[in-house]
Write a protein that binds this DNA or RNA. Sequence first.
DNA 1: CTTCTATTCTATAGATCCATAGAATAACAA
DNA 2: TTGTTATTCTATGGATCTATAGAATAGAAG
Lengths: 242, 242
Amino acid sequence: MAAVPTGRLVKDGLYEQFARIGKAVAHPKRIELLDLLCQGERSVEVLADAAAMTVVNTSAHLRVLRESRLVATRKEGTRVFYRLADDAVCEFFFSLRDLAGDRYAEVDRIVRDFFDARDELEPVNRDELLSRAGDGGIIVLDVRPREEYEAGHIPGAVSIPLADLKGRMASLPHRAEVVAYCRGPYCVLAPQALELLRRGGFTARRLEDGFPEWRRAGLPVATGESPSVDPHPPSTPELTGP
Amino acid sequence: MAAVPTGRLVKDGLYEQFARIGKAVAHPKRIELLDLLCQGERSVEVLADAAAMTVVNTSAHLRVLRESRLVATRKEGTRVFYRLADDAVCEFFFSLRDLAGDRYAEVDRIVRDFFDARDELEPVNRDELLSRAGDGGIIVLDVRPREEYEAGHIPGAVSIPLADLKGRMASLPHRAEVVAYCRGPYCVLAPQALELLRRGGFTARRLEDGFPEWRRAGLPVATGESPSVDPHPPSTPELTGP
DNA sequence: CTTCTATTCTATAGATCCATAGAATAACAA
DNA sequence: TTGTTATTCTATGGATCTATAGAATAGAAG
């Protein structure tokens, strides 16, 4: 009881610091920005577009994230690029996301309503994909924007960004089974790709989770350009943020 | 661009759910409550006392935590006991705490100002403690409240709650080297114990982190009563929250 | 130097959050 | 029944957060 002059002050100071992280992730748009930045560095304008916000508003949210030191910036000419301040921030985002997935049936319901409706077949998990990767009858399709593919992808995967898929679908071998992947279990790119592929007559499944989880699991990663089914991309790579 | 009617709605819905977690941990007192609940179930009154808040205010914060489903309650007579809704919540608290420790020099400074001033010697890490546990010349001291000790402690550790330490210090073998531990790297109990022990003429160090981290590392855990240097506790076990 | 573009800054009104006060409830005891 | 204790509910003023509008800055291009 006696002689502990600073105990409460120390505690208050520490929890105050911890709460800075909490305040930073107390707004859905800021979490979305962190999710986007887990994919790599982005300019303000690109982030604003992807998160469906005005540039001014996006800049204000990014300011909050920067002041909480979860993100850092780099200036290049007139543009400012934001990135995660540390890989640990991405890990923290994962643990936040996973806890929400654990605790909230709502998350499960939203995912089911949207994702399962587009899954004709069960999703493929990583182990299954690894064990079948060699047998040739399977095409692994990366439907993220080209620049994310080049920054890192599953070895052997073919890059067809979702925006290009409609036009380039015909170039895929028609008998093949396609496994599409994107940014993670809550990313809408792969489910949308499945819908297009299914309409085009393909047998398509999606990888249960996406590239960030693949890398996190310590599995092999390839970078730069890679085998393409159709070597002449018909349109400029474009960020697809529906 | 076309044919994606619900993409944005899905994203907004998901990030909204993720942000529920963020909002729950956007206030330092709520984080402190989660930290306390990581130690075990507690009544509102005990929590209010430990976090230095009024009962009414504590109840309001607990309500927020309950509505975000991070904690659950159990009623026993006229008292309500709160507990974490899941072990995953404790894991999430750890990752929040560790990220803050990584990112904020302030945390390090606060810890140093308070803790290092009370460390005469370097803290002991888990490996070192394990390798020296058998050699007899070392006493492992659990200075948490008795009830936390009984819920789980390091095998072979002696329980002397901080509040009792002054009175029971004399019963410790005077030549022994003491290693004190408490609730974790930011808990003030062990540093305070070191100060008392040092004044009493003991050679005392503290375990680098506390019991929650010990358990989390998968190391052996003992429960219930255990060897006590002084088998007649001089005062009722009491929650020590300076 | 002027124009253009990307971003940030300032001010503001509306919404939300927070601590406290005072009252209400619920379980138990006398 | 009447207290008594632990907790929650309701109302309120003040603080903080958020989105937007409009202006300012800074770099690149003409």
